[in-house]
Design a protein around this nucleic acid. Sequence first.
DNA 1: CTGCAATGAGTCAAGTTGTCTCATAGAATC
DNA 2: GATTCTATGAGACAACTTGACTCATTGCAG
Lengths: 189, 189
Amino acid sequence: MTSDADPRFLRSREAILNAARELLLESGPTAVTHVQVAERAGVGRATVYRHWPQAEPLLVEAMATVPMPFLDKPTVPTREWLRRELTAIARQLDLDDVRAVSTTLANTALWDEDMDARRAQFAGILTTRLAAALDDAQARGEITLALASQDAAAMTIGPMYYRSTIERAPADPALIDAAVNALGTWAAG
Amino acid sequence: MTSDADPRFLRSREAILNAARELLLESGPTAVTHVQVAERAGVGRATVYRHWPQAEPLLVEAMATVPMPFLDKPTVPTREWLRRELTAIARQLDLDDVRAVSTTLANTALWDEDMDARRAQFAGILTTRLAAALDDAQARGEITLALASQDAAAMTIGPMYYRSTIERAPADPALIDAAVNALGTWAAG
DNA sequence: CTGCAATGAGTCAAGTTGTCTCATAGAATC
DNA sequence: GATTCTATGAGACAACTTGACTCATTGCAG
């Protein structure tokens, strides 16, 4: 039997990951230590060390358990789809755990290679998905883009992210509409 | 003589703040400990404890020594002023220390009251300055705003901030133009 | 030159970290 | 149900860190 199929192993693993996620959410990334995780998870300290000898990869994995906002498969009309998706992202960013993970990712990625890889992957998915959806929309005549489609993610998600993490307020529908309209000229629907 | 005018006191204080800032920039907020700061500053460990009994207020003050991007006094035409200011902000955000301070502020503010106060102050200045400048511009007939002037900071600085901290790439002039144009309809200049 | 206050070096107890050992008990195999 | 394997919790342990304190030294102002 490989150890990673042992129910005891999996139970410990889940308890540890949950505890780490809760600690991150409640007290920040510095609270994710072997001792605190062990206490919260109701698991021996040695068990945490056995599963994750380093605290940092544990933090990385715990962060990965938080469902982050991504762009759903595009539908037509693209304008409505984008409005819906941005509204969903704004609502997600209003959740404490998503905000904690986002800002921790942006911050720790500056000094940690693993975190930076996660950041790059996350950013890349959003940028390419949105760019592809907008290129298609333009090919379909739905919009005349006012900027490179690769800039669309920054132009639309940027305001939601700034509103949530720097201004710490919810994004209003007017801000979302403004972001959607900033991408170019939408054909009259 | 009050202690805070003693040259020895001021020298130590400066050396400590510089060391803390360097450590933050090079290795992140967790590196700002009494021991590491003392070593880097070339002062005794006890001296650091005397100046800052807690490491966290030291981090806060060290971050305050990094010149953050703010909006300069508005000039006319407002559109050109804004383009210039956003270009300056984008360039600033490309500097490692500004990025480190920004993301550390956004992250630690989630769990630390002092940091949150700094974040709120910083965000408030940008939001109100830009809103005032745009309200004036609209009164002058330079622009017809497409959103509440309080949303302008998120709409313009947001994309630069996202580009710098999440996508980790420089902001191109096209993105800046798109952000400026997103605010409303500018009168033909 | 004198008095004062900040400093560096050092000591210390308490707490933390990472490693290891071993008896126990949960899980699969026969 | 008995047997075997292996993850686990508890605890011991040395190395290190933390925060507080002491004291001789040294830079500074009058």
